[in-house]
């Protein structure tokens, strides 16, 4: 179990930033690491409560997941869907080439 104060280090911040496609300036990394550790440390207080016999709570409202019937009642709005796209052509979104 890592020390509460150092759950996150700079390499971890780099990794998360890469996974999230965030470009974080080098100078901000140290303070960001501290911020994250503070937040996680705060939340970690919850670990002090014994919840081993408590079922995870998904909703405080008591609502159940609503289901809809299998009807086609949406779509046919390609103009609207493409409206904010920086580039589109013959109904397609156009993006810089992505090939694996």
């Amino acid at each position: 179990m890592p020390n509460k104060d150092t759950i996150v280090d700079v390499p971890t911040v780099n990794k998360i930033a890469r996974l999230c496609r965030l470009d974080i300036p080098e100078v901000n990394k140290e303070s960001l690491t501290n911020d994250l550790n503070n937040i996680l440390g705060f939340v970690a207080q919850l670990d002090e409560v014994d919840t081993s016999n408590v079922e995870p709570l998904a909703s405080v409202t008591g609502h159940k997941l609503p289901l809809r019937s299998d009807d086609v009642n949406d779509g046919n709005i390609e103009d609207l869907v493409l409206k904010n796209a920086p580039e589109s052509s013959s109904g397609f979104f156009v993006v810089p080439k992505v090939i694996e």
Binding site: D74, G75, I77, E78, V81, G91, F92
Partner: peptide, 15 residues
């Protein structure tokens, strides 16, 4: 509620 059918015009079945 967008259609799941195959072979439509591009982005037609998009909500």
């Amino acid at each position: 509620g967008a259609s799941a059918s195959f072979g439509s015009e591009a982005n037609r079945n998009v909500s």
